[in-house]
């Protein structure tokens, strides 16, 4: 379990004073993956550096399993860092060391015996599925494999906290998915608290239990991932699953934006809605998926000739929220040719 309390980081003083992190408060429970997203410049890397104690916060605290790490001496800090494993962005491997030697680094620093190191490294490489790559050098590994080595290294000293600092950035989608699966597996097996810092919204959907959006040093929104996705008013929820461009509606149909709100929306809700309203329903766009065991989704519907209040009511009864599009938002394509 890791908690931040009013974590603040200020660079410079006087006129050049810049507040990079402004009173961040959140905690990541054991067995939880907490994602922090934000645009570049939001303070993500500073947050990462404050969490793994590469930088000291200006004020506030970082608590790992209840112990305040931000007030330790330089020497105690070195010991404390061992309770936090960090996975770095792709360039984090030592180019002149084999995969095994990279994984062994934290053990070497600690002064583990060669036999102990060898055994632990073998265990770790097996854990991340790279036993056959022990003697490969980083340049002989794919991006995904390099990140697996990074993960094995981060786990070498059996930390209870794992910090992933843009660990999947720059990986292809398949490698990202396999790294995400590995992290979830490790989270479950080792009961880790994982703080996953990224700028990639897609990856957040795959990995996170909870998510916070960092902007200009503030957490502007946070919550459980599925709650945010089912909240039609959540900016972060919308940013995570943006509504793509939709097909043009026919004739005078109104365009409705529908979102899953309830936990149990019936899969045949469109038929039920059509039967209830007694008019044809056009599906102009839709995206539905299961995330962390809950179905989330949104759809863009074309519905004509019904009182809007009836539509809203019928959808609400099915566990969906809806808003009627005002014409300004309609895509330009529904001008002429697609009436057919």
């Amino acid at each position: 379990m890791i908690s931040l309390e009013k974590l603040t980081k200020v660079y410079g003083r006087g006129d050049s004073r810049t507040v990079v992190l402004d009173g961040l408060d959140f905690s990541v429970a054991s067995g939880e993956i907490f994602a922090v997203v934000g645009p570049s410049g939001a303070g993500k890397s500073t947050l990462a550096h404050c969490v793994n104690l590469l930088e000291r916060p200006t004020s506030g605290a970082v608590l790992v399993n209840g112990e305040n790490l931000s007030r330790l001496s330089e020497k105690q800090l070195r010991v404390a860092r061992r309770s936090i494993g960090t996975i770095f962005q792709a360039d984090g491997l030592f180019s002149r060391r084999t995969a095994a030697a990279n994984v062994a680094l934290p053990l070497d620093y600690l002064g583990a015996t060669p036999a102990e190191t060898k055994r632990r490294v073998g265990e770790l490489l097996e854990r991340v599925g790279l036993s056959d790559k022990a003697s490969s050098y980083p340049h002989q590994l794919s991006g995904g494999q390099r990140q697996r080595v990074g993960i094995a290294r981060a786990l070498a000293l059996r930390p209870s906290i794992l910090l992933s600092d843009e660990a999947t950035s720059g990986l292809d989608p398949e490698s990202t998915a396999s790294i995400v699966d590995l992290l979830k597996e490790l989270r479950d097996d080792l009961d880790l608290s994982i703080l996953f810092i990224t700028h990639e919204m897609d990856t957040v959907l795959q990995v996170a239990d909870s998510v916070a959006r960092l902007d200009h040093g503030h957490i502007v929104e946070s919550g459980a991932l599925v709650d945010l996705l089912r909240d039609a008013d959540s900016d972060l929820g919308r940013a995570l699953r943006p509504r793509r461009d939709w097909e043009a509606a026919s004739g005078a149909d109104g365009i409705w934006f529908v979102s899953y709100e309830g936990r149990h929306v019936r899969p045949d809700w469109v038929s039920l809605l059509g039967a209830e309203l007694g008019v044809p329903i056009s599906i102009l766009g839709a995206s539905i998926e299961r995330i962390n065991g809950v179905t989330v989704g949104h759809a863009t519907l074309g519905i004509g000739g019904v009182d809007p209040a009836r539509v809203t009511g019928a959808l609400a009864a099915l566990g969906l929220t809806a808003t009627l599009d005002d014409a300004a938002l309609r895509p330009e394509s529904d001008e002429l040719e697609d009436v057919a």
Partner: peptide, 25 residues
């Protein structure tokens, strides 16, 4: 320079950082 951070985060002392993350590389 990112390797220095990797070494630090892995619990290296200053001398260990210089030896492994700087000179050796």
């Amino acid at each position: 320079p990112s390797l220095v951070n990797v070494a630090k985060a892995s619990g290296a002392s200053t001398l260990q950082i210089i030896r492994t993350a700087q000179l050796s590389e």
